[in-house]
């Protein structure tokens, strides 16, 4: 029943980003609730005001309330914000699909593609729920900085203007500035793709390369991202915005990012399985590289940086070898592949 909609926003996913978004909404005097999968985590958040696994040492707002009963929570908000890692995304979406109604707005902030199927998250939401008003939130939003009370910006893309305005209303006046857009495909692909470049930037740091090399990597990475996106029908301008270059700048500059760490350790000669085994959180760049690599092959797209990262992750290339491969590539006109589409 509509009368049961006593919340403004339900945030789904108790990772660091979900917790951060819920915190900002509460700060912005919205009635927001956090749904988490594990009951123990809900209890920890409600009683000790901590999320020790994903935000160790951070004191959460006392009014941040978490629940783990999806059926009861899902009906309570007109706006649902889903922040669940790609690996669990379909499962949560399917469960949500049992409870959601067609008037509810469903926005996700998950960066990555589904393994094997290479589906974008909005496609999964479409397949697993009856929701039509679907949107994606993406941008340079490092959770640690958000939790520290700093300002940030993001893009909210949806084909439905109602989606954009509802999300903008929820965050209006907050520290998170939400810009609107329509390019769902571009926004989702940018968010997924940037993890690959972040990984490559980590490798560059690990090799002891400086700012010139990193800028080269980011810029050429952006160009690959745009080519990949445009081949899927994205608007090229999206990649010049918050979800594109914006997110790349933040992710590649932050040595704390998980993808960056994977890259750095690869450069030091560690093997992928060992690196992944030692990490508590998901580094989305790893599966995304496999997905983008095979998709680019199907489309006949040349993406040298993706190629090199794939080599390091899955084909036992050393970091030095990958760098050498990249440096040996012929140089053409800088933006030819985008300009003369």
């Amino acid at each position: 029943m509509t009368s049961a909609r006593d919340l403004d926003v339900l945030v789904l996913g108790g990772g660091n980003f979900g917790t951060a978004l819920c915190t900002i909404l509460l700060e912005n005097r919205k009635k927001a609730l956090l749904w988490v999968r594990r009951r123990e985590l809900a209890e920890e958040i409600n009683t000790r005001h901590q999320n020790s696994r994903y935000l160790p040492g951070v004191a959460l707002r006392p009014d941040l309330v978490a629940v783990s009963d999806l059926a009861a929570a899902a009906a309570r908000a007109p706006l649902l914000l889903m922040v669940v890692p790609t690996k669990a995304f379909r499962e949560v979406a399917r469960a949500l699909g049992d409870h959601i109604q067609g008037d509810q707005i469903l926005i996700h902030a998950t960066k990555g593609l589904e393994k094997d199927s290479h589906r974008r998250m909005s496609e999964i939401l479409r397949e697993e729920t009856c929701a039509l008003k679907i949107g994606v939130l993406s941008g340079p939003n490092l959770a640690g900085e958000l939790m520290a009370g700093q300002p940030a910006g993001a893009l909210l893309a949806s084909h439905y203007r109602e989606c954009v305005s509802a999300a903008q209303a929820a965050f209006a006046g907050s520290r998170l500035r939400l810009y609107g857009g329509r390019d769902v495909v571009g926004t989702e692909l940018a968010g997924a793709f940037k993890n690959i470049i972040a990984l490559a930037a980590g490798v560059a740091s690990g090799l002891g390369l400086g700012d010139n090399a990193r800028a080269l990597l980011i810029t050429r990475g952006l160009s690959e991202m745009a080519r990949f996106g445009v081949a899927h029908g994205a608007d090229v301008f999206t990649f010049g915005g918050l979800a594109g270059i914006g997110d790349l700048m933040a992710t590649c500059a932050s040595p704390l990012s998980r993808n960056h760490q994977v890259g750095e350790r690869l450069a030091r000669g560690e093997k992928l399985p060992a690196i992944l085994a030692s990490m508590t959180q998901v580094a989305e760049g790893v599966p995304t590289t496999a997905a983008v690599f095979s998709r680019a092959r199907q489309l006949g797209l040349e993406l040298p940086i993706v190629r090199a990262v794939h080599g390091m992750l899955y084909e036992e290339w050393s970091a030095q070898q990958a760098l050498a491969e990249l440096l040996r590539l012929p140089v053409g006109e800088e933006l030819a592949a985008l300009r003369y589409r």
Partner: peptide
């Protein structure tokens, strides 16, 4: 109406806003 998983959907909800049936040109186009 059924969603893609075969679950029943209350289709009126798609055109409701705060409980009332409404037109929204942009939404309806989508």
């Amino acid at each position: 109406s059924l969603d893609r998983r075969g679950r029943t959907v209350d289709r009126r909800r798609y055109v409701q806003r705060d409980g009332a049936v409404t037109f929204d040109a942009q939404r309806d186009e989508e």
